[in-house]
Amino acid sequence: MEYLTGPLIAFVGIAALVICTPGPDTAMTIRNALLGGRSAGLATALGVSTGLAIWALATSAGLVALLIASEPLFLAVKYVGAAYLVWLGVQSLRAAFGPGALQQAIAQSPARGLRPRQAYVQGVVSDLSNPKIAAFFSSMLPQFAPAGATDFVSLAALGLLFSAMTLVWLTGYALATARMRDALRRPRVRRTLDGITGVTLISLGVKLASEDR
């Protein structure tokens, strides 16, 4: 009972601050909700949450420690993730400013948007290709385990709680974006948003690649 009023509350508070800070997962959810509507936005949120759950279980099983201990492997995952974000950003910029972008935006219909399955995969890949999450989990989860316990169940429970909180937060983003989608799909507004999203994703990719561990 004491744990429920102490370390767990502290963990929830810190997790909420981290989750609410905009980053690649937020940008991905907004992007896909604009492209594919509510279903794509929700699928992206679920994909991100799935990726977090995998990282949490890997951390609890001690596998993440191997990743962090191997600098070449850590860097490889980091650069793959950075390249993926940059690639998605370039795609958005092409949609905004490429040849015939305005005509394409006018002709595009909601039915031809991003499919939920694609959005889900993008969410999973985006999260799993960010080794910063692995480093964060490996340093954060043991600090808040009950009575200093570092067994698989205790660490996994905290990691899965973080994943569930992220799902709730990103679901809110997806629903809010989807509700505004009709107004935001006007051609010139859509091009502007594609441009902003593209620059954001590229910036996040460059930041990920240039950051130290």
Rank of each mutant, 00 (worst) to 15 (best):
E2P: 05
Y3D: 14
T5N: 08
P7K: 08
G13P: 02
L17K: 01
L17T: 08
I19T: 07
T21C: 08
P22L: 11
G23D: 11
P24Y: 00
P24F: 05
A27S: 07
M28Q: 04
T29S: 04
N32L: 11
N32E: 09
G36Y: 10
G37V: 03
G37L: 03
A43K: 05
L52I: 03
A53S: 09
I54T: 03
L57E: 01
G62K: 05
A65C: 03
L66I: 15
P72N: 08
F74A: 04
F74P: 05
F74E: 01
L75G: 03
Y84W: 06
W87Y: 14
V90T: 09
Q91G: 14
L93D: 10
F97W: 13
G100S: 06
A105T: 09
I106S: 11
A107F: 07
A107E: 12
S109Y: 03
R112K: 15
R112P: 13
P116L: 15
R117Q: 12
Q118S: 12
Q118R: 11
A119I: 04
A134D: 01
A135S: 13
S138T: 13
S138D: 12
S138R: 03
S139L: 12
F144T: 07
A145Q: 12
A149R: 08
D151H: 14
F152A: 12
F152K: 07
S154C: 13
S154Y: 12
L158S: 10
M165G: 13
V168Y: 06
G172L: 12
R179E: 11
A183H: 15
A183S: 15
L184E: 08
L184F: 08
R186I: 04
R190D: 13
R190P: 00
R190M: 06
R191T: 07
T192W: 15
T192D: 14
D194V: 03
D194A: 05
G195R: 03
I196A: 05
T197G: 07
T197N: 07
T197I: 15
V199I: 14
S203A: 11
L204N: 00
A209F: 01
